[in-house]
């Protein structure tokens, strides 16, 4: 048992445990805060995979941006003063069947396929290389992503602010 193994299982338990709370908790606020821990666990897994820049991006965008948005959504659409912070589920039994079949298939495939792997490269700083790739071989998707973000920004503001009988 080396340090990598211990940290890996620690992060795996955090990620999957928090993911389970997100999915199975009946309280929306609990689910939203469990999502925080799931995102942290995934960021830790990125660090274990030597993806330092992605891990920081994950923390800044998911934890700092998307999670706050989701919390705003929860607060603005639930009767917080009411007792109704709970959310029911529908079609639980068929969903359990479908999802366990899906999970079994996926884990079986991931488990049994002899993936062609290369020897893990030593740790190095990835930010500079990623920046170079974004401005050379991935320039077109990068620019399109900026246009998509601009459109999403304007569209979200327009949709959320629309007057009821405008």
């Amino acid at each position: 048992m080396d340090l990598f193994t211990i940290v890996f299982y620690f992060l795996a338990i955090i990620t999957l445990g928090a993911g389970a709370v997100v999915v199975f908790s009946r309280n929306i606020i609990h689910a939203a805060f469990a999502l925080l821990f799931a995102f942290f666990g995934v960021a830790g897994l990125y660090v274990l995979l030597m993806a330092d820049f992605i891990a920081i991006t994950q923390l800044m965008i998911y934890v700092g941006g998307i999670l706050v948005l989701v919390l705003f959504g929860v607060m603005l659409t639930s009767q917080v003063l009411d007792v109704q912070m709970k959310s029911g589920t529908i079609q639980t039994f068929p969903a359990v069947l479908v999802v366990s079949a899906l999970a079994g298939t996926l884990v079986g495939i991931f488990w049994s396929t002899p993936w062609k792997t290369t020897a893990a490269a030593p740790m190095e700083v990835t930010a500079a290389k990623i920046g170079e790739m974004l401005l050379t071989s991935y320039l077109l998707p990068f620019e399109i992503a900026s246009v998509v973000l601009l459109a999403a920004l304007i569209g979200a503001a327009l949709i959320a602010r629309r007057e009821k009988n405008a």
Binding site: A12, V23, V74
Partner: peptide, 27 residues
Amino acid sequence: LNHFLIISGILFSFGIFAVLTRRNAIL
């Protein structure tokens, strides 16, 4: 590699389960 893939597979299944069963759109 397999361990990370299996974690992602389980997380994916959790997400599908939430999409299929939750009534609240935010969940």
